[in-house]
């Protein structure tokens, strides 16, 4: 008996289309907003402190706190640096440190203060020797590479304009990556094509290839953001483009234009 046709239901499809358009618009707005204002993440530095390494005036006391009545010279001595052999605070180096620390035998319970001082002095001497050795090795390498034709872009002969600039950029990126490095897969890598404008500003970052480790990609992006502050203008005031492959061990140059 009810003769009413539902003519309004035809508006349902229009509503769905409008809804889909609204969602698409919101999505595009978010993408545009994300590109306009990239998220600036502040990362809290995490320091790993191994209690075994802390100097104690008397190991028997079990505390690194200075005793109030004994302002001895041994307390103000620096931490035993020789154990910290690896320079960058990367994950692998931390593991090594922990292993080394665990392997050191625990101090004898009956050790005297004199014995402790002697041990500290020995450790200091060893640290100095290692530092000297490392510095010498570095100098030797510098001298060896100064005349090498392999510096710079492969095939560039080391004398062409841009090769030193590439090294400069690579060095800045390496320094920055040391600060931001973090990864969640075994052998992550990210190949990035960087374009630097004639005035030295980073004009484009393009990830060409990636192992798919989002954590490492983020670390690389942050490293580039950090390093770009130190970029200088390319030689001859021309735009510069080069590919860099980021790996946890460092950065290698992939291509040059």
């Amino acid at each position: 008996m009810i003769s009413r046709n539902p003519p309004i239901d035809t508006g349902m499809s229009v509503s769905f289309i409008a809804s889909a358009v609204i969602h698409l618009a919101v999505f595009l707005l978010l993408v545009w907003w994300g590109q306009l204002f990239p998220p600036q993440m502040t990362i809290q530095e995490t320091y790993y402190v191994d209690v075994v390494n802390l100097p104690t005036p008397n190991p028997q006391s079990g505390s690194s706190a200075q005793k109030p009545g004994k302002p001895g010279a041994e307390v103000s001595q620096p931490a035993p640096a020789p154990l910290m052999t690896a320079p960058p605070p990367s994950r692998t180096s931390l593991k090594t440190i922990t292993k080394e620390v665990k392997q050191t035998p625990p101090p004898a319970l009956a050790e005297t203060e004199a014995g402790f001082n002697e041990r500290m002095a020995k450790l200091e001497r060893r640290a100095e020797a290692r530092h000297e050795e490392a510095a010498l090795e570095k100098m030797r390498k510098t001298v060896k590479n100064s005349g090498s034709p392999k510096i710079g872009v492969p095939g560039a002969g080391g004398a062409e304009a841009g090769s030193r600039y590439t090294d400069y950029i690579k060095s800045r990126l390496e320094d920055a990556l040391k600060e931001t490095i973090s990864y969640s897969t075994k052998d992550p890598y990210v190949a990035v094509l960087l374009t630097i404008a004639a005035d030295g500003t980073l004009s484009r970052i393009r990830i060409v290839q990636s192992s798919g480790d989002a954590t490492f990609e983020l670390a690389v992006r942050r490293a580039i953001d950090l390093a770009k502050e130190k970029f200088t203008a390319p030689p001859n005031r021309t735009a510069y483009e080069n590919g860099f492959i980021f790996k946890p061990k460092g950065i290698s140059k992939s291509s040059s234009r």
Partner: peptide, 16 residues
Amino acid sequence: GIGKTGSASLAVVAPG
């Protein structure tokens, strides 16, 4: 993933 890599730093945990 964290268990596989063996690292639990904030930079590894936070993105996941």
